[in-house]
């Protein structure tokens, strides 16, 4: 069972996405801000990180950069989730080291497909 870390500060979004992922058979951990997300990634070593980009304490761009700068967490795929459906965001996310990108509101089948593709690569 793949272990997913969901880093999301919005309670409703966190609850929704984690419940749906659990229903699809994933083991879901949650973090509420960028700093604790980076820390949990280091201790829990999840198979994949889903990261909201507008996070308190440490934003998603910065958090992704830190994960990718750390040799221990570098290989863990990160999917950036943003509310702004703009190409610039996609490029910013990829530049920050994220492996993929999706927009909110989440379209679950699309997100699942992206997750599966990245998990299969590992």
């Amino acid at each position: 069972m793949a272990k997913i870390l969901l880093i999301e500060d919005n309670e409703l979004n966190r609850d929704m996405l984690s419940r749906r992922l659990v229903r699809h058979g994933y083991d879901v951990l949650v973090a509420y801000d960028g700093a604790s997300g980076v820390e949990m990634t280091g201790t829990e070593l999840p198979d994949l990180v889903l990261m909201d980009m507008s996070l308190p304490v440490l934003d998603g761009w910065e958090a992704a950069q830190r994960l990718k700068a750390n040799p221990e967490t570098r290989s863990i795929p990160v999917i950036a989730l943003t509310a702004h459906a703009m190409t610039a965001d996609r490029e910013r996310a990829l530049a920050a080291g994220c492996d993929d990108y999706d927009t909110k509101p989440i379209e679950l089948p699309r997100l699942l497909e992206k997750m599966q593709r990245l998990l299969a690569r590992r």
Binding site: L12, N13, R20, R23, A83, K104, P105, I106, L108
Partner: peptide
């Protein structure tokens, strides 16, 4: 519009959860 999307996100998401469940 951006602010409106956030609660809407919850409405769509929870209706999908209920549909799945």
């Amino acid at each position: 519009s951006h602010e409106l999307r956030t609660p809407l996100n919850a409405i769509i998401g929870y209706s999908e959860i209920l549909l799945e469940e």
